[in-house]
Design a protein around this nucleic acid. Structure first.
Lengths: 148, 148
DNA sequence: TCTATACTCGACTAATCAAGTAAACATTTT
DNA sequence: AAAATGTTTACTTGATTAGTCGAGTATAGA
């Protein structure tokens, strides 16, 4: 159930840019602060640019900036665009459902749907701004099983 | 955030054995019903045996049985044993925490911790018996906007 | 225009995972 | 003994992920 390194590094970079709004950060500085090699980060920043999350400026004093204010950048969306659906199984995905021949009587699908919903609930309701403001609430918990 | 095919197939097999308690199912039948090739399933069943979830019997009328009643088999535990921690990032794992040098001021960790807790909450509270009885409750969750 | 700095592109290596193949071997039942 | 079944080990192929490397292009500023 891992998030890929690309997803993690991309979010790190977006957060750093969010902490320096109005400034242009060169990739060398982003690399240093996020602990990612310049060369690997180049690929990730390029991807973020193609996805429209950042703008870049070339030449001296060049670098990257956030294209939208942090409150408009949704974490679930970033992760989906970088590494595909949040769902643990294709059959439970809302955004890119995959049919499965077992599905009719599948005892597992309701579980994966529930897990997907829990993950999506967190990530789709979180923006970059929430992270910057440390607004993530610890888990409340609760019972999950039907009583009978 | 995927569950591996091994995890899915292992759970399918355990569920099938749970539906046929008291019977010995040959691998050929398990393979057919779970839609997994016999050869790949052999590897998975071997792993499940080493982990203590199933017993095997050789020779004719041989096959696999569940070693414990379904209510004693915890889904979170099965997945952890087959594919490692539930947490999306090592830094947020309870069962196998990994240190990260950025951790001190990390804005991302609280998010990963929350996601981990949500996943663990579902999977650690679910047993094979819950799945067999279709006791999984759909998500109550707030208004989650569906992105694409 | 020169040039330092930054971004772009493509090739390449290495590791891991999924899925399947193959073959030799051990038991158990008939 | 023969047939059926599981056990074990090792190899293969393809996809994806995680990086690395080197050379090239664009641009701001002196």
């Amino acid at each position: 159930m891992k998030v890929s390194s690309r997803g993690e590094y991309a979010l790190r970079s977006l957060l750093l840019l969010g902490q320096h709004q109005g400034q242009i950060l060169p990739i060398s500085e982003i690399a240093e602060k996020t602990m990612v090699t310049v060369k690997y980060l180049e690929q990730i920043m390029h991807q973020l640019k193609k996805l429209g999350y950042v703008d870049s400026k070339r030449g001296m004093q060049g670098g990257y900036t956030l294209r939208f204010p942090p409150e408009e950048i949704n974490v679930g969306e970033v992760i989906r665009k970088l590494e595909g659906p949040l769902s643990p199984m294709g059959c439970a995905s809302v955004t890119s459902y995959e049919r499965c021949s077992l599905e009719a009587g599948c005892l597992l699908k309701p579980l994966w749907v529930l897990v997907r919903d829990k993950i999506a609930e967190v990530l789709d309701q979180t923006t970059l701004e929430d992270l910057l403001q440390r607004k993530i609430k610890p888990d409340a918990g609760g019972s999950l099983l039907v009583k009978n």
